[in-house]
Write a protein that binds this DNA or RNA. Structure first.
Length: 577
RNA sequence: GCGCGGUUAGCUCAGCUGGAUAGAGCGUUGGCCUCCGGAGCCAAAGGCCACAGGUUCGAAUCCUGUACCGCGCGCCA
């Protein structure tokens, strides 16, 4: 329908480039991108291109900037351009054009983003929990960050395949089978399947310490499973099904969606041929009975003198083997332009090795390892659950929802019990997700109950609150307020809000480029915060019809941006809370 | 030992790949409900951006070194 729209930033970049050419500085490969000045008094956008050009041309940056401003083509979007300081070019947008630009993004209901990803495909691999183990807070980061990236890329037009590469194969199953046959508590399994499996697994570990022969039994059971023994296969199936059922319940609650769930077991038949092939290619060698791929200085400093094991001396494959087979499968199946992996930082070396090995094997693919920092527990307060184990994910969600319920009951007692329960769920889960997503993924994160459960300040409830206020205004006005062309920016608070809203598309694109949902989160907080000031300064209902109309449109735009943005983070907007 | 990463306000964190006076939230202090939702708004205090050099018009950001901290380095994933 509508042509792909330029972002403000793209539009201005083009103008500045033209100005540079017209001023005689030619086209060159000096990167230019206007940025947002720290102080709004310095304009809506600012370019420091004159500094760079000045350096290249060995001339005074201020003179270059002056020449560029002189040569800047007239444009409906630009109200003024002036040289400032040692050579900045400060650009101020024309109010009418700004309003028009904003309205062009609003199609009645939603907010339209540009589609730079149209025609492109990516596979994104995230969450990937292990069968027979309970999901704990450690799984939150991969799951939440991966899901947000999936949503962000999809919103920009990418075809995205979200693949849950679950750990459903390997040596843990032999142990589990031995433990199952000896110590199963059937009632406990019926009541809480994964809990019982986890108990059995831990029990096996304890017993095996006293009696190492158990390990041999476990190895034998694993081998039987891997060679297709019907009894063990049936048992394995049971473990997998029980675990998936529980995972799905958690994903449902988190609003996390996968397109496919292809675990490690899916690639079993490919492993032997892959290892043989790599050996035949001369890329791997046998060493102490195992098969390894060596890396040298030509593979980069970080990989030099490291190696990747792809077959153990007992003949079993490893996860590196599976990862390589998985790359091959994904390339064959989807021909993606990009394959992204969302895992913690500890797997950095591993994935560098897998990527390098895949390239050696001739797989032409563009990998992206989105790694995130470690989750640490807040100082001293070892946040252990009753069992003493790591924090269980469901318990964390329950606690947050409970806390939210208390706030909802206190503030919205007039709503029905059912409605309050729904609000508490959305608020609690949203708060947990946002606490993670608002942080740079690469930083380590401290698990801090106070922060996770907070409902004030830079939190999901704050965004939701701003959105609910918008909705409340529409209810009071008895209409949703959207009239094309109807925004006039009179008050400074209106203008600040409009500029921010209009920047949304470029913000989302930047978040995608950097693989960082926190870029979106930051922007949403700024929008909600600016809206709160606007709300305080500018009355909407009861003003003159023209002003009311204009402000209703602005509120409509705010709601659309907040709604779109929260959806990108997987946070559920609420009409009331 | 080698490699990778980190160090920004009392606490938790941003900081747009080199731009003007380094920003938020929480906490602290002080204001704001004749007003569309106070889960809110406004303001103040709080900084040797770990340290030392270097690069240049300009450095929290890039380079080198140092100190602490974390993580990774063949039969787990």
């Amino acid at each position: 329908m509508e042509p792909p729209m330029q972002t403000l930033s793209e539009h201005l970049t083009e103008l500045i480039r033209q100005a540079a050419v017209a001023a005689g500085y030619g086209d060159n490969d000096v990167p230019l991108e206007p940025c947002v000045p720290t102080d709004p008094r310095n304009g809506d956008y600012q370019s420091n291109y004159a500094f760079r050009l000045g350096k290249a041309a060995r001339s005074n940056p201020r003179a270059v900037a002056a020449a560029m401003v002189e040569a800047l083509p007239a444009d409906p979007l630009v109200a003024s351009a002036e040289v400032a300081g040692p050579g900045f070019i400060n650009l101020r947008l024309r109010d009418e054009a700004l309003a028009a630009h904003l309205l062009a993004r609003l199609d009645g209901e939603g907010f339209t983003l540009s589609q730079p990803g149209a025609g492109k495909t990516m596979v994104i691999d995230f969450s990937s929990p292990n069968i027979a183990k309970r999901m704990h807070v450690g799984h939150l980061r991969s799951t939440i960050i991966g899901d947000a990236l999936r949503r962000i890329y999809a919103s920009l037009g990418w075809r995205v395949i979200a693949d849950n590469h679950i750990g459903d194969w390997g040596t843990q199953f032999g142990k589990l089978m031995v433990a199952w046959r000896r110590w199963l508590d059937q009632d406990a399994f019926d009541a809480d399947a994964v809990g019982e499996l986890q108990r059995l697994y831990q029990l096996f570990g304890a017993k095996a310490e006293e009696d190492p022969s158990l390990e041999d039994l476990a190895r034998a059971e694993t081998a039987k499973l891997q060679s297709g023994d019907p009894e063990n296969t049936a048992l394995w199936r049971r473990f997998v099904d029980a675990s998936l059922e529980e995972f799905d319940a958690v994903y449902d609650r988190l609003g996390v969606v996968f397109d496919v769930t292809l675990g490690e077991s899916h690639y079993q038949s490919r492993l032997s041929p892959l290892v043989e092939g790599v050996l035949a290619q001369g890329l791997a060698e046998e060493d102490q009975g195992a098969v390894i791929i060596r890396f040298g200085p030509e593979d980069g400093k970080a990989l030099a003198d490291t190696l990747l094991l792809i077959r153990k001396s007992d003949g079993a494959a490893l996860y590196g083997t599976t990862d390589l087979a998985t790359v091959a499968y994904r390339m064959e199946t989807w021909q993606p332009d990009l394959i992204a992996y969302v895992t913690d930082v500890r797997q950095r070396l591993h994935f560098s090795q897998v990527f390098a090995a895949a390239r050696k094997m001739g797989m032409a693919f563009t990998p992206e390892h989105v790694y995130f920092g470690m989750l640490r527990l807040a100082g001293g307060a070892i946040a252990a659950t009753r069992s003493g184990a790591v924090l269980n994910l469901v318990d964390v969600l329950d606690t947050a929802v409970e806390r939210a319920r208390g706030v909802v009951d206190g503030k919205s007692g007039h709503l029905s019990d059912q409605e309050r329960a729904g609000i508490a769920e959305a608020v609690g889960v949203g708060a947990i997700k946002y606490a993670d997503l608002s942080q740079n993924p690469q930083s380590d994160i401290v698990f801090d109950w106070d922060k996770m459960l907070s409902m004030e300040g830079n939190t999901a409830p704050y965004l939701m609150y701003a959105y609910a206020r918008c909705m409340s205004i529409f209810r009071k006005a008895d209409r949703d307020g959207f009239v094309p062309g109807g925004i006039a920016l009179e008050h400074p608070s209106e203008r600040s809000l409009a500029v921010l809203l209009a920047r949304t598309p470029e913000v989302v694109e930047r978040a995608a480029e950097l693989w960082r949902p926190n870029v979106v989160a930051d922007h949403l907080f700024a929008v909600a915060n600016t809206f709160a000031s606007f709300y305080h300064d500018c009355r909407v209902i009861g003003e003159s019809p023209e002003v009311e109309q204009s402000r209703l449109s602005l509120v409509r735009a705010t709601a659309a941006v907040l709604e779109q943005g929260m959806k990108l983070l997987g946070i559920q907007p609420l009409d009331r809370m």
